[in-house]
Design a protein around this nucleic acid. Structure first.
Lengths: 214, 214, 214, 214
DNA sequence: AATGAATGAGCCTTCATTCAT
DNA sequence: GATGAATGAAGGCTCATTCAT
């Protein structure tokens, strides 16, 4: 019964912060949900902001635990590795309904970064980027520059991110029937993989520094 | 000096809502910025939420005015059209510093849609999507299905969106020097255009319905 | 179209003040109901309080017009005069549903008198009291004192007043069926008349100054 | 110093609500009078309306404590019981100056009933009515009907109520000297008692259902 | 004469935070 | 170590009133 309270509060805080954002979430609501005293937050965390930070940290620790970085046999062809990677990333982003709040928290950090942002990127985002880069390494010429590989990586990540961040827009743009049939997770994984592979394999090699710009 | 007040308030509201979000923005702050009376909001808009709506509408009307849908000579090759389109979209998204608040407002709508969301999509987003689709039409086989074209379009949009939505992450992931040299607007336009063109031109034609899925 | 507005506003104000009381009634609501401009009240009456006064005056002018002081043949026996009087008073108090607001206004003046109170009493209440006293005069000994006659009059008025002022209490105390059958206007007129007549005719004559008091 | 605040606030609220009514009374004024924080009302009662309810309840609990239901020796003749009863009722209604606010609160409930009304009637009014009915029982024929006894009771109550509800009217109608000499509490008790006794003892017995009505 | 725009004061309520126990 | 009571600051909103036209 020691720091159980503390834990209960962080756990309760996550979904609530995700749902309502920092401002609209109230300490009262969180403490009620955690069956803890109203003063718990200030007692255990000092203030609301610190609790938020702790909640975000807790959230992505949980996320990493549930959808770990993909593993595959060493002889898996890079094309398949890419497909696996994209599937994992989309899964993390689209989430199941119960786990969705983690992503929602992450998105809030993207558009309104707090102190939590930095550690999220280092602990959570960068490793994924590195993994993606290592997959790309097997598909692109060795002498390709740092930034081109990163741009490719971002092009892949961006395609996934879109379906999560602009989800509501997609819902409004694509009729429900069409969405149900062709925009489910499997089809999206396939499309993004094919699109990206086609791009990677046919991208002109010359360094972009001599590119034209209108 | 007639109903200037109303306009002043909407104009002041935009950047403030964008900066702080609906909750943290106070009508007191907005009215002060607009040099208007505190009761102006109630008088002209009824309540804070309606003001927010009006501010969002005003914002994207402004945006469209400043970076209108691209126009080009009828003989422009589709590849160049795509480059123009991507340049315009990125410009709208990245914006100049003073105009950035419009996009921030838009992102908040993506993540936490309000009543404003629907009209934004219809008036602002869908026309852009249609334009992009018409460009793609000139580059892909005629018999390609509705959803494949949309997926391609979203793949392009997603790549752009990423640099705006995940801007803070990119800033943390890419060293400043590298960013300054290779991730400025021009280079990004070039990369996204090349990447997308390479993908479009080499994408396997068969319908995705017979694709494999692991 | 001259002072029509002014009249429309007073007429609209009456029922609204009656319903909600001075504070809860808003100028906006009144002007809307009167289809007049929001500034009309201040323009025509100066302020809200003056409008209230005017509305009360208007109300009881109307009341007097609709239920005038009873008239009867000169040879009507005083017992019947009393019955007529009580019937008229109860009618004014209980009112029909549309005219009820006049009484509600009056009651508010009773428990929270404003400047309107005095003129109401002089123009509206005192004449009724005089009439009642003149009826009593025909039934009680000539030498009875001023205050005894007034006390009798108040005893009669009080019985009527009770059913209006404490209406809600009566509703809660008496089952609906019983009320419908035995507490309608006719039965109340009969009861109050009988009760009062029985009292008047049997009241001990000695002056109350020598009464015992425990 | 525990939950004294809550009590202080209710106590301060009573007279203020009585004086100004629900709307014009401000929680600021109440909290200041109670030497409590402005937020106390929300903390202890939730909102203003609940505080009002509590204040009304508190008020009539107090009232009953100060002027309890009359008690008398079992051999007291009913006529004397009635006098005692009327004295107690008038005392509660007219009150002393400091305690007047309780009645003012009650009158407001009569004219503009709130949620508090019902419980007041049940806990406070009905017991008094029952007591009065039991006194009447000893003076009227056994076979008299339910509603006749109630009508008599109301006739008695109404006479008392009048001097409270229409107090301001009486003040304007009766010259001050006259009032001082003949309308003080003792004289009123005597008059109302005599008047009512005379009525009760001489009321025609037949049921009112066969009464004439003009 | 009459009105639409604008204002200033004030109200209820909410919330994170603190404090005494 | 933990909590229930209490607080101070601020927020959105409502309203009667004023003012320029």
């Amino acid at each position: 019964m020691k720091d159980q309270t503390q834990l209960r509060v962080v756990q309760a805080a996550g979904p609530i912060f995700a749902d309502k954002g920092f401002d609209r979430a109230t300490i009262r609501e969180i403490c009620t949900a955690a069956e803890a005293n109203l003063a718990s937050v200030n007692y255990h965390f000092g203030d609301k902001e610190t609790l938020y930070l702790e909640a975000v940290r807790h959230a992505h620790a949980l996320k990493m635990e549930q959808v770990p970085l993909s593993q595959w046999p060493s002889n898996t062809p890079p094309e398949e590795q890419l497909r696996f990677f994209i599937r994992a990333m989309l899964s993390r982003m689209l989430g199941t309904d119960e786990l969705d709040w983690g992503t929602r928290l992450l998105m809030r950090e993207m558009i309104e970064p707090t102190i939590a942002c930095k550690s999220i990127v280092e602990d959570f985002i960068r490793p994924q980027l590195q993994l993606l880069l290592s997959i790309l390494d097997e598909m692109v010429p060795q002498n390709i520059s740092f930034h081109r590989k990163h741009q490719m990586a971002f092009s892949i990540v961006g395609q996934c991110l879109h379906y999560r961040v602009a989800r509501e827009f997609v819902n409004l743009l694509i009729p429900e029937k069409e969405r149900a049939e062709h925009f489910d997770r499997n089809h999206l994984v396939d499309h993004i993989t094919e699109f990206s592979l086609a791009a990677i394999k046919n991208l002109p090699i010359p360094d972009s520094s001599e590119k034209k710009t209108s």
